[in-house]
Design a binder for these strands. Structure first.
Length: 586
DNA sequence: GCCGTTTTCGGCCCGACTGTTTTCAGTCG
């Protein structure tokens, strides 16, 4: 049986979650989580390790877990996992995503109330059963209920990276089928929304190919459920409950259909209104000339070949899919040919990465070498600061030792004529009063400081703002990290006046990062217009805790584009020398 | 269950906050 790293990591993490719930030894449970993390961070394919019997070379995997992995590769099952699944009903695992509710109380509620579904839990919160349990009360029940409601809002949505991971194999598979003349991903995934509902795939094919194409689609090995099967559209669900819609249109309809199904709804409404004013009708089948009575012959669309052609007929330049949100893009592309958005090739270095000095999985050298391999010119190491004890935050004497290591590595690069530089950075906690984590003298010693909030994210808005004001005004702070602290589909971020924050940051020449981790994508792209207006600088940062963690950069770049950032306003498009100058300029 | 310049046992991320309590357990980052 062919297995991949992701799949193994998912099973190991499920064991971890179930062990927590089953009240097994905490450290034994954590061992499975650690093993899952190691497998995820692995650069090689785990099957190599299985075949060579070298699984225990992987940090965090010992004899026992190695056996479990082998068992899974051979039989598709893991004994421990199967036993745990019998003990804990699958519905209860989802409760772990409820913020404010942990394993202990989950088990208490599950056992004492005899419920195991999310909907039942919400019911029990509302009717007072949860509040009546010992150790829980009215406030706890309210908090759980609010969190469930928040989760329900996003029930059928997934993160951009999850959607992309499902779309890719489907897209590649369909593209290779006979009769496919054109194929594109449409919908919110094409627009690079941070969360995606359904994955939409659009194909242009002649009539005779339609049935075999839909057949191939619904029989794909990832499909676990066929939700619908028609002549123009079929929908399926995958094992992880994601929905994929496939539409097949006539080749001559493709451009209009792509435009229509890419959306957004708001963008489409504006386009249709614009078409109307110019004597056209626009829908998913094409662009049509209207007569004076507003009628048209739908058999005879206006000639066009691409989205670009359709935009042109509407007196617009091509609007990149990321910007089709009905937020001023029509007015802009009426006047301008292009917006010059930042591109992957513009990125020259990495500015937010952790190492084994705090909670990263790889040494500074390994992270630097991974950056060199990926063609980057520099790396800013930003481990956690003192207060982040849970993440192994650096004590002042450790900071100095880390600097020595960085100096040695930089010397080594220079001696060997490797044009690569490691910047000494830190991700300093913004403390409750907005001060940073080390004394002024130590802070001055860093090349740059990323200031991030990690604790007390739920302070009232005004308190939170005064905290950020102090941090932004701090001369050492050059970048604000993940401003709201949100975790997409899991936790709302801090309540902030983002407009004020952006203005203040621009005024103090402090950048606000676009955290490229697909769980965060924070700064939110919706603040792009304000950021553009005041000339805010940003930096697209992977917040990498492993080598693989560097490879989330494309998600950050997409969000930066969506937020209308050009190359000039992104710090890590600068050369190392330019950056050094920017860090010291106030 | 994993790991080890502390190596076959005894640790393992630890301090703060919250809500429930009346001295603390559970959760979070």
């Amino acid at each position: 049986m062919a297995v991949n790293n992701q799949e193994i990591a998912i099973r190991l993490r499920e064991i971890y979650q179930l062990m927590q719930l089953a009240g097994k030894n905490r450290f034994r449970a954590i061992a499975f989580d650690r093993a899952a993390q190691s497998v995820e961070a692995l650069n090689e394919n785990i099957t190599d390790y299985i075949e060579n019997e070298t699984l225990t070379d992987i940090k965090g995997i010992g004899q026992s877990i190695a056996e479990d992995i082998k068992q899974y590769a051979e039989t598709g099952k893991i004994e421990v996992l199967e036993a745990l699944r019998k003990e804990i009903p699958p519905g209860v695992i989802r409760w772990l995503d409820i913020s404010g509710l942990g394993p202990k109380n989950i088990v208490k509620i599950h056992k004492e109330l005899g419920i195991s579904e999310l909907a039942e839990l919400k019911e029990a919160c509302l009717d007072g059963r949860v509040a009546s349990l010992e150790g829980l009360g009215k406030k706890s029940a309210e908090k759980i209920c609010a969190s469930i409601e928040w989760m329900e809002q996003f029930e059928n949505r997934c993160r951009l990276d999850q959607a992309a991971a499902i779309a890719k194999p489907m897209f590649d598979f369909l593209k290779a089928q006979p009769g496919v003349e054109q194929i594109e991903i449409a919908g919110s995934l094409r627009r690079s929304m941070e969360t995606v509902g359904d994955v939409d795939i659009l194909i242009a094919a002649k009539k005779s190919f339609i049935t075999p194409l839909f057949d191939a689609f619904v029989e794909h090995h990832l499909v676990t459920e066929v939700l619908g099967r028609g002549d123009t559209k079929s929908s399926i669900r995958t094992a992880d409950r994601r929905q994929v819609d496939l539409r097949i249109v006539k080749p001559e309809q493709f451009a209009a259909a792509l435009m229509y199904f890419t959306g957004s709804k708001e963008h489409n409404v504006l386009l249709r209104g614009r078409a109307c004013k110019r004597g056209f009708g626009l829908n998913e089948y094409g662009l049509f000339k209207l007569d004076e009575g507003g009628n048209t012959n739908f058999e005879k669309p206006v000639d066009y070949e691409s989205e670009q052609d359709i935009y042109q007929k509407l007196d617009l330049h091509f609007v990149p899919p990321e910007l089709r949100e009905g937020r001023g893009e029509i007015e802009y592309f009426e006047k301008h040919e292009t917006i010059n958005l930042v591109e992957s090739d513009d990125i020259r270095g990495i500015l937010h990465a952790h190492s084994t000095w705090s909670d990263g999985k790889f040494s500074i050298r390994q992270m630097a070498e991974a950056c060199i391999e990926r063609g980057y010119e520099y790396l800013g190491i930003t481990d956690h600061s003192l207060t982040a004890a849970y993440a192994g935050g650096l004590k002042p004497d450790e900071v100095k030792k880390q600097w020595e290591e960085i100096d040695r590595l930089n010397d080594e690069f220079e001696t060997n004529n490797i044009s690569f530089h490691i910047f000494k950075g830190i991700e300093s906690d913004i403390l409750g009063d907005g001060s940073l984590d080390y004394n002024e003298k130590l802070l001055e010693g860093f090349d740059f400081v990323i200031a991030s909030v990690h604790q007390n994210l739920t302070m009232p808005r005004e308190k939170m703002m005064s905290r950020f004001r102090n941090a932004i005004k701090h001369p050492a702070a050059r970048i604000v990290g993940h401003p709201t602290g949100r975790l997409l589909l899991k936790r709302d971020g801090s309540d902030l006046n983002m407009n004020e924050l952006i203005e203040l940051a621009a005024e103090h020449n402090t950048a606000i990062e676009i955290n490229a981790n697909p769980h965060r994508l924070d700064l939110d792209w919706r603040h792009g217009n304000k950021a553009l207006e005041v000339g805010l600088m940003s930096s697209i940062n992977p917040d990498a805790h492993s080598i693989n963690g560097i490879d989330v950069m494309p998600f950050g770049i997409k969000i930066a584009r969506k937020a209308k950032f050009n190359k000039e306003r992104i710090l890590n498009t600068k050369s190392a020398d330019e950056l050094r100058r920017w860090f010291v300029a106030q």
